[in-house]
């Protein structure tokens, strides 16, 4: 069942006061998230994946297109989508104690010391933590409190915006396991925004690869990782140091993300693509199905 859907969404950020120059952060994206699955969105920094996550959460209104929650379009917030942010230092109000942070997410009837302690227990924190201010917590503990706040709101979907990137390597596995446990217990749907392909490989059911504001490949994680169809996906996989399947051909990273103000004509990846043809300059390749659930936007076939 599709629980969350993005239908042809656009988000341009104007960078001059007249609105003539715009950063095309999200440039016509459609995707869906199925109930209780983990959908990963991967791409380089600046590919628009964070903006897409914020559009899915409702924090950013798309310029065009709509977001459907269980099939009906919504505007603003309905409380069923919560978010865990990348930077644990900025995600907790420094003047609030843990009790207040977690209980803020509960409605008044449920707000009590017991229910806050219960949620803290779920994220692996002792009830004694309710007295602590954020500056008294370590990075991993802060992220646990942020997760506690998200689940205290009784959400269905949690958007994880690089939830462990800012943490110490030794803490990352703990937090990821915690998130997986919670999903198993409560059946949450996750949208994981991450650039680390190792984590995406281990956690996600499906993966969306973004490049310069567009989706270039989408499909079951296993299928996309083991049989990547887009040269950009192949490039990302070749470059990863994580323990993931190595692609059949090796495409080394070259060049940088093009300007999102004046993106290249045709295929946006052609400026870095070793397989670019004349056609790629003229016409933009559209997503097509290579198998039932595997889509790619490229003229070449690998």
């Amino acid at each position: 069942m599709k629980i969350l859907e993005a239908v042809n969404v656009y988000k341009y950020f104007p960078i001059d006061i007249f609105g003539r120059k715009k950063i095309r952060a999200v440039d016509g994206i459609s995707l869906h998230v199925a109930s209780s699955e983990t959908l990963a969105i991967v791409g380089e920094s600046g590919s628009g994946k964070t903006t897409l996550g914020r559009i899915l959460s409702g924090l950013v209104k798309p310029d065009k297109g709509k977001i459907l929650y269980k099939g009906s379009s919504f505007n603003g917030f309905h409380g069923k989508v919560q978010m865990v942010f990348q930077n644990p230092d900025s995600s907790l109000d420094p003047s609030w104690q843990t009790y207040d942070i977690v209980s803020e997410a509960m409605n008044n009837r449920r707000k009590s010391l017991d229910s806050v302690a219960e949620v803290l227990e779920l994220v692996g924190l002792n009830p004694a933590y309710i007295t602590k201010y954020p500056h008294e917590l370590s990075g991993g503990e802060k992220q646990r409190v942020a997760i506690a706040r998200a689940i205290a709101a009784e959400p269905e979907i949690i958007i994880l915006d690089e939830p462990v990137s800012a943490l110490d390597a030794s803490i990352r596995a703990q937090i990821l396991n915690l998130l997986l446990d919670l999903q198993e217990k409560k059946g949450y749907t996750y949208v994981l925004i991450d650039h680390d392909l190792g984590r995406v490989w281990h956690i996600s059911d499906r993966v969306v690869v973004m490049y310069a504001g567009k989706v270039v490949e989408e499909g079951k994680t296993e299928e996309v990782f083991q049989d990547p169809k887009h040269p950009y996906t192949i490039m990302l996989l070749s470059a990863s140091t994580s323990n993931i399947p190595k692609p059949k051909i090796n495409v080394s990273i070259q060049g940088e993300l093009p300007s999102l103000i004046n993106p290249p004509s045709g295929c946006r990846f052609r400026t870095r693509c070793p397989f670019a043809q004349e056609k790629c300059k003229v016409e933009e390749p559209q997503l097509y199905n290579v198998s039932r659930e595997h889509e790619v936007a490229c003229y070449n076939q690998f």
């Binding site: 917030f77 989508v81 919560q82 995600s91 109000d93 803020e104 997410a105 709101a153």
Partner: peptide, 8 residues
């Protein structure tokens, strides 16, 4: 944390 409050 302001964004989190908006989501709530």
């Amino acid at each position: 944390y302001v964004e989190a409050a908006r989501l709530l």
